[in-house]
């Protein structure tokens, strides 16, 4: 852990790994999209709409997974004060929000032909919507502070509070949903997953994961550069002030 905490060492590793990650992402995307759109069979119940699942389900997994990454990174940043962990949490949030948003939109596009409506207050859809709210609040909190170090700590506290609350929210939404479940809604526990469907699903999930790692590395690099920029600017202002002060003192004497 400590070996990666050093920013220069991180940059060296990130620069070495990044091209591989990007290539892997591209290959997996081509493979997953091709498999999902061309070679997998249509479902006997859901027809061609089952293809939406290949992007919908992995996006939902990523939405949850990235919140977990954010919470762990926040805890590490808060306890051991690793600046790199704080930046990881910050860099991960927009990616997680994007995947959560995509799972909602693709779920809606799947729901319309299957359930006959764009949106149902299904337990899973509702939980994902609340997860999106948590992401958005987290991103706003980062932006609310001028001082990045205070922002990092405040955001970390929020991420941890959110991660403790997430299971409670999930539990209560599930419970609420079974109470109010309209009889007409078809649940998604249709036929058992066939391997012809499972494989493209796994490939797409891996493609999303590789995409996450690639974009995460790029964003952390950007945050590190941004932080260095900030320090250099502060130094420059301090230097100019001291030069002005010296010149003034010289003129006075």
């Amino acid at each position: 852990m400590h070996r990666f905490a050093n920013p220069t060492r991180f940059l060296r590793i990130a620069n070495a790994v990044l091209p591989w990650c990007v290539s892997l992402t591209a290959v997996l995307f081509v493979l997953g999209l091709g498999w999902g759109l061309f070679f997998s069979p249509p479902d006997y119940q859901q027809g061609e709409t089952v293809r939406i699942m290949y992007v919908h389900v992995p996006a939902a997994w990523m939405g949850l997974f990235i919140y977990g990454v954010m919470a762990v990174a926040s805890a590490v940043g808060l306890i051991w004060r690793h600046p790199l962990a704080e930046l990881t949490a910050k860099a991960a949030a927009p990616i997680g929000a994007a995947f959560t948003f995509l799972s909602l939109v693709t779920g809606s596009l799947w729901g319309k032909p299957m359930w006959g409506t764009w949106w149902v207050w299904d337990a899973r859809l509702t939980s994902m919507l609340i997860l999106l709210f948590l992401y958005i609040g987290y991103i706003f909190l980062w932006d609310a502070f001028d001082d990045p170090q205070r922002a990092a700590k405040a955001a970390a506290i929020l991420a941890l509070v959110g991660s403790v609350n997430l299971p409670i929210i999930k539990f209560s939404v599930d419970w609420w949903n079974t109470l109010h479940q309209p009889a007409s809604v078809v649940t998604m526990q249709g036929p058992k997953i066939d391997s012809a469907i499972l494989w493209p699903l796994i490939v797409m999930a891996l493609a999303f994961k590789a995409f996450f790692v690639s974009v995460l590395l790029v964003r952390i690099k950007a945050e590190l550069a941004e932080r260095k920029l900030r320090i250099m600017r502060l130094n420059q202002v301090a230097r100019e002030n001291s030069r002005l002060g010296a010149a003034q003192a010289g003129a006075e004497s």
């Binding site: 027809g47 293809r51 939109v105 995409f211």
Partner: peptide, 19 residues
Amino acid sequence: MGGYAAFVWPAYGIVLLVL
């Protein structure tokens, strides 16, 4: 897409667009 083109293609489209 078996008559579901209006749902399948936008789903893939928005994923690629957002990412």
